[in-house]
Design a protein around this nucleic acid. Structure first.
Lengths: 198, 198
DNA sequence: GCCGATATTGAACAAGATGTTCACTTATTA
DNA sequence: TAATAAGTGAACATCTTGTTCAATATCGGC
């Protein structure tokens, strides 16, 4: 009755198909619902109705709605990293195509509905925060090593870069992608490129 | 029993002291509570307990918690504009002291507890959104008129500037103001200054 | 200072959400 | 096929929201 694998999703051994199925159903339900209404307005009841899953089942898998969301965002992140890797291999390592920001805009574009929910006007604070943390983590590795910035603290710089990318993404999606991923990336680099590694 | 003046606070005529008193009590209660716990966790019950006001009284003044918050943020904004004006007069109009961003950092500093709640890690999405809208509105008037930005859409630029300021503010407060307002302002201008009017 | 108008009060209420429990059923896998 | 583990859903206690209403307290014009 107790399920311990909240953390380790893959769990190479413990594959009872019922577990996979239930978790998948709930994650799909969230993705589906989040496109109809704000995250904050979605109730556990909505989720189990949509997923067609028992109430107690929900709570045996996730502590609450937020934990379900987290597990979904983890997947999105994994998906991004895979796509980034693949793109990287295709175009060669030194190519500007490898720019992490471009990979990001492209990944977002190829998961339109999901990102719209995550990054758009209607997303909840929890989503935004988690997503933002991912971005910061990501950027930690991409700072230009600069004496030039006159000792702007690293963390501040990371925050600046992450929030800027977030701003562009948000604008892009709230306007339903009026420009290409390449164009967005160009602007992003015009705005903050001097602070990133080339 | 009905109170119509949700919008017009000043209401030069309709000054029943009871109304002023109740609204003040509730706004103070929010400010007080928001320093103990996340905005999202504050309940109407908490508010009326703290303010020592009847339940139905609350609902005869505000539609819900968010409307109370809005009224509070309106006040904060007014306060900022007054301080900005005053500072501007003191130092003379052409002086860099007039920079809107510096005025902002200073105002934030002089309302530490409040801004910490509004801008810090623990604030809710509603607060952030409203605050962010204020910032965008503010920045609309301070864009450098640039052919130079190669047609970065104005709205995108505004969003970028607002989110950057927000990022700096957030970092500043989450670290309990480790630097002066002037220092923060300098960094801000190093990061985005080229896109602002001097 | 009186009095009509108006704001405040608080209890009671319905509706809905959360998270838990448990006896029962169903699916899985070895 | 049998032991094990997961899913079910009703019932529950608790909390929150927002409304209603009759009784009470306060205000401000006269």
């Amino acid at each position: 009755m107790e399920i311990k694998t909240t953390q380790i999703e893959k769990a190479h051994k413990s594959a009872d198909r019922r577990i996979q199925r239930t978790r998948q159903l709930l994650q799909d339900a969230l993705i589906s619902l989040i496109q109809e209404k704000d995250y904050d307005e979605i109730t556990v009841q909505d989720l189990i109705d949509q997923a067609n899953v028992g109430r107690s089942t929900f709570y045996s898998h996730f502590l609450d709605k937020d934990e379900l969301l987290m597990s979904g965002l983890e997947k999105l992140r994994t998906s991004f990293e895979e796509q980034h890797q693949k793109l990287g291999l295709e175009v060669g390592l030194k190519d500007p195509e490898m720019q992490i920001s471009l990979a990001f805009f492209k990944h977002a574009q190829s998961h339109y509905a999901l990102y719209k929910a995550v990054v758009g006007k209607r997303s909840g604070s929890v989503i935004t925060k988690i997503f933002y943390e991912y971005l910061k983590e990501m950027f930690s590795g991409y700072l230009a090593n600069n004496e030039s910035q006159e000792e702007v603290p690293v963390e501040l710089m990371v925050q600046f870069l992450a929030s800027s990318l977030m701003a562009l993404l948000t604008w892009w999606f709230d306007n339903d992608l009026p420009y290409s991923a390449e164009q967005m990336n160009n602007w992003y680099h015009r705005l903050v490129g001097q602070f990133l590694v080339q």
